[in-house]
Design a protein around this nucleic acid. Structure first.
Lengths: 348, 348
DNA sequence: TTGAAAGCGGTACCAA
DNA sequence: TTGGTACCGCTTTCAA
């Protein structure tokens, strides 16, 4: 059926070893033999069976990526850039979505380990880093992406989330907001750190940090728009009403915007909004959304680079942490007292 | 390092064959032996090496999915539901994004074939079905998703795109539009069929089909928002100006909306818009977007089911076509003479 | 420079 | 009910 090394060897009257060596550019093959083999490989459109190669070499040339939600544009962007860089280095990528469910994520990790994927890249929804110690016990390598765990010294590529929270909050303060609320999660490191940054910015500006204004929801990423919608409704019922909301991510911000407009309030005049992630369509939303950009492309690229370094035998085994700096992209949802409604219309 | 069948067999004083059979629930193993083996498997947390199994059985239990753009929410949704169903059946999914580039797509197909993925699911960006005949020559199975090819009788799961075009156009006509333009592509079947549906609806309503109002761009999906933005600008310069635009997909519609608002025109009063795909955030856009829903979830599920049927030995080899019916979701961007601005605020 | 033999970790077949 | 043997397609080692 499919062409094998054996077939080529037989055709040419050489051994399979010779063909195998030509295939992998070994030095010790004569030019003439090499040419004959290459010619035949072309003719038959031979493609090595990577499963067989994986079995003997112990490396599948396949990596795994688990994200909480593939439809969330931020993770889709990360997945895309990881995939691109890996492919450029001859690696394929198995992608799975955990739906923000820790148990499902564990199952997927187990599957990927069984498949002998060379490295796992995981934006984890677990509460603790326990599962990852198990991976380590099996001597398998992995990279945490975007989210990490306290006390787990693992390879990690993510954003400086303290800075994210601080940056968003400071921006809102600079634009005249004083009663700034937060909507986010309370389980994953990104949400916790952003919350911390938010609080620290408030304190620095001598603004009161009020528990009433802090809404933490477990599923802050999955269907974030619904979460944001409901949470914003709660905030609107408060007195005094907040005059700004920092949302843990853009889907939450979208939901919040929906709730606010539905209550016939204006954005940003009555309530300003800042999200995070700066998804592709943030500028096209009902109210163009200010967001803290996390450079999803760089995040994916750096994560893939780190993963590739782990399969290099020379590399040292010290876990490496990469922290990217976020960047504010201000749009209409947070810019008070400015000109028109079409600031930066096509900016991403 | 990792536990192997051999290790368990040695520990228990049985043969590897016995252990292997227990693992796969063969009938012909004594209850006592079976229990001992299962116990040991648990103890050692044994996980079969799927690469080895793949080599001997010839099935990798891995499928491949190639989409034009993973960040396009429509394809992300399809990918998610494909992945979910396959995982439930013990299959992993390798995902690649072709960036709407036919050559890149060919490379990815070659890679996946070399990896011996059991079935390939492809939303193809090719101009012709040529590459797929090659896959067939290699006796490998594949499923076309969303897009198909004239004259290629292949397994296919997609939308009735003629109906998409007709439905969108008829809706615009019913809402009082008379000079309806189209922005889309001219290479893939979805765009061509929707264009055909658009024309047929115009003709049925005795409206003139004008070439001026038809803008076809090669990259109608990849960065569709930029495409839509530019194309809409061209349309706005025409005289008489169109009073509606049917956009081949939602990203294009988003770009078009940007251009229209920038020109200080109103939607839907001056120009109505309908997109297609009904992406998750369509209702949260600057102008809540009317869209033809393609039920991406069902699309992915049906495609995965079809793919699974191909690895069942019993199944007949007749290529099967599944055509899903689209559904109009009308929102503010096309509803003239109606009440407020907040119709169906959170609808998806 | 070339190739014979062994083996990666499983499964299939058939005999015991 | 159990297991010996061959083999999947490739790489590694080492001798010729």
């Amino acid at each position: 059926m499919a062409v094998r090394l054996k077939d080529i060897a037989r055709d040419l009257g050489v051994s399979v070893v010779t063909v195998s060596k030509v295939l992998r550019n070994h030095e010790d093959i004569g030019q003439e033999t090499r040419d004959r083999v290459l010619k035949r490989i072309k003719e038959l459109n031979y493609q090595p069976n990577l499963a067989a190669r994986a079995l003997v070499t112990g490396r599948s040339h396949l990596m795994g990526l688990i994200v909480p939600d593939l439809v969330h544009a931020f993770f889709a962007e990360v997945a895309k850039s990881v995939s691109q860089l890996l492919r450029a280095h001859g690696y394929g990528l198995v992608i799975a979505s955990s739906e923000e469910d820790p148990d499902l994520e564990k199952q997927e990790i187990a599957q990927m380990l069984a498949r002998r994927l060379d490295v796992l890249l995981i934006a984890s929804s677990q509460r603790t880093g326990e599962s990852f110690r198990k991976i380590e016990e099996q001597q398998r390598s992995y990279v945490l992406v975007d989210r990490r765990f306290k006390g787990l010294a693992a390879n990690f590529v993510g954003t400086d989330d303290l800075a994210v929270g601080r940056m968003a909050t400071e921006h809102l303060i600079e634009n005249g907001c004083r009663r700034i609320a937060y909507i986010g999660g309370n389980t994953v490191s990104t949400a916790l750190d952003r919350l911390k940054g938010y609080r620290s910015a408030l304190s620095s500006a001598n603004l009161r940090v009020s528990g009433k204004y802090t809404i933490c929801r477990a599923h802050a990423d999955d269907s974030g728009d619904v979460t944001g919608y409901r949470a914003a409704q709660e905030l609107l019922a408060l007195s005094p009403r907040p005059d700004a909301i920092f949302c843990n991510n853009d889907p939450i911000a979208m939901g919040a915007i929906g709730a606010i407009l539905e209550a016939n309030l204006r954005i940003p005049e009555d309530i300003s909004i800042v999200g995070a992630g700066n998804v592709r369509y943030a500028s096209a939303l009902r109210v163009p959304l200010s967001s803290i950009d996390q450079d999803s492309h760089a995040l994916g690229t750096r994560a893939a680079e780190l993963a590739l370094s782990l399969v290099q035998p020379k590399g040292d085994r010290q876990p490496k942490q990469v922290l990217l700096q976020p960047r504010l992209v201000a749009r209409e949802s947070s810019l008070r007292n400015r000109s028109g409604s079409l600031l930066q219309p096509m900016q991403r």
